[in-house]
Amino acid sequence: MSGPAGGSALVEARGVVKRFGGLTAVHGLDLTLREGEILGLIGPNGAGKTTLFNLLSGQFAPDAGKILLEGREIHHLPSHRICRLGLARTFQVPRPFLAMTVSESVLVGAQFGRRVPGTTASETADRCVALTRLEPRRNAPVHSLNLAERKRLDLARALATRPRVLLVDEVAAGLNPTEVRETVGILREVHAAGIGIIYVEHVMEAVMDISHRVHVLDHGATIAIGTPAEVTRDPAVIEAYLGRSAGS
């Protein structure tokens, strides 16, 4: 897949810091997602990937630094405002609305997300249900879904908010190889529709397969940025992964 080299920045984090009590989870981090790009975000456990997602999506406010979405500062905004400006996310462990059906859940995103003139909420919801291959389960109660379906439902709900940027948190973890391939296929379609993606993943084949660039974190700081091929050869990255995994 060809990488769009010089696209303008969709999402930019500048010098972002997040502390929890005495622990600094993110140390003055800079990160850029360019227009039309899939950015892989990897790093060992505890590197700060999920914390960074929570900062970008407004679940946490940063202690210092700025976050910009299409040039606009968003780090002081609450989650729902950020979502309506066009940044949506999935969760590492899917967080479904258990009392609803599949189509109702997706409708939540469509009703409350970014407003795009010319389409109705239910059309958007239908499109996202179809895109995530949940069509056969559209009237099923959410609590009857299996893990793979719940992950796709999270994705559908996020897409229904009509984002410009999608943050995907470990959507392939815990799935079998067929399901992983299917999920990667969905992400490709999302990208083809012009949505920028930041993709956190432990399943390396998946993330290396579709990312244009990979951003590697360790201990809340950047240790490498580059194409998948460059990053896998980077000594700091090998050290961070092997140094740790040898011990665990």
């Binding site: 989650s79 729902h80 979502c83 949506a88 969760f91 967080r95 479904p96 009392a99 995103g109």
Partner: peptide, 15 residues
């Protein structure tokens, strides 16, 4: 109903 089921996920969906 969305926020009753999961307030954070609802907020992340624009509620």
């Amino acid at each position: 109903i969305a926020l009753r089921e999961d307030a954070q996920a609802a907020a992340a969906s624009g509620v």
